[in-house]
């Protein structure tokens, strides 16, 4: 059975999701912040985490975006193959939702139309959209506005198979150390392992959109996530990079098959405002 979905409904949802993501942090991120504020050992670090809690409260109550960098909108659209869209081109509908959300939601327009000419597009479009086919007749939209303070500190490493898991661990630690205070710690570290060059980066981005209280379903990866979180928090970078025991809230790792000759590792870093909203239509 083919299910028909109006593209107007897509636009409306994307618009609402842009606004929701930038004013209210998801429950998993709030819990992570509250737990960190409780456990932080450094007095200055504890003070900063307290300010971040206060910041979230002000954002929601007074409708001021959590962070002024309301990001470039990244959208994952998982489309059931039994869905038929009616009313226009899906891509246009998504971009229109971003346009309306950022304009009507008092969100910052941070997108330039060309990377060299650098003229602001004034409505935060275009968004970066990743489409994926799925079974069934539903559409799952995930919207993750991405700030560039942390995006700029992200890395990709094309390791050799001989580098093994130790190489992967070193790559993650190197990226986090280099990011330091620039990425607005406490951060969330999204890691992709495997695939090809571009698939690996995409895995890392998808890992960031996974709730921070949802570990990997793969047992050894789950252990790796926990070990890397421990090691990262042992770096001492701390809240705001000003020293402390909370450098990251979570390390989320996604994996994929890869080539006999390669071991790609991508580390996509996000600040403590790791925004992600998902809806199923």
């Amino acid at each position: 059975m083919i299910r028909t979905i109006s593209t107007e409904e897509i636009t409306k949802n994307i618009k609402e999701m842009c606004i929701e993501a930038n004013y209210y942090l998801s429950g998993d991120m709030r819990e992570a912040l509250d737990r960190a504020a409780e456990g932080e050992q450094a007095p200055l670090g504890k003070k900063i985490l307290g300010q971040l809690q206060e910041n979230l409260k002000i954002a929601g109550e007074e409708m001021i975006p959590i962070c002024q960098d309301t990001g470039m909108a990244v959208i994952f659209a998982e489309i059931g193959q039994d869905v038929h869209f009616e009313g226009g081109f899906l891509e246009d509908a998504i971009q229109e939702g971003v346009r309306q959300g950022y304009t009507e939601g008092f969100l910052r327009k941070s997108v330039v139309g060309d990377p060299i000419i650098r003229e602001n597009t004034r409505d935060n479009t275009p968004a970066v959209i990743h489409y994926q086919m799925a079974k069934g007749d539903k559409v799952k939209l995930t919207l993750a506005p991405k700030g560039f303070g942390s995006e700029n500190m992200s890395r990709i490493f094309m390791l050799k198979p001989a580098d093994g898991i130790e190489g992967v661990k070193n790559a993650i630690l190197t990226a986090v150390k280099d990011a330091g205070p620039n990425a607005c710690p406490p951060m969330v570290v999204g890691v992709g392992i495997g695939g090809t060059f571009e698939k690996c980066a995409l895995l890392a981005k998808q890992a960031l959109a996974r709730p921070v209280n949802e570990p990997s379903p793969i047992p050894y990866i789950q252990e790796l996530e926990a070990e890397m979180l421990r090691k990262i928090n042992g770096l001492g970078i701390g809240p705001g990079g000003l020293g402390g025991t909370t450098t990251a809230f979570a390390v989320n790792i996604n994996t994929y098959a890869t080539h006999i000759a390669g071991l790609p590792v991508a580390v996509n870093i996000c600040c403590h405002v790791n925004r992600h909203v998902a809806r199923e239509i």
């Binding site: 900063i48 300010q51 971040l52 206060e54 910041n55 979230l56 002000i58 954002a59 007074e62 001021i64 975006p65 959590i66 962070c67 002024q68 960098d69 700030g147 303070g149 205070p181 607005c184 705001g240 990079g241 000003l242 600040c271 403590h272 405002v273």
Partner: peptide, 9 residues
């Protein structure tokens, strides 16, 4: 340094 990501505050 001001606290990054505390724009509302």
């Amino acid at each position: 340094a001001a606290v990054g990501g505390a724009g509302a505050l």
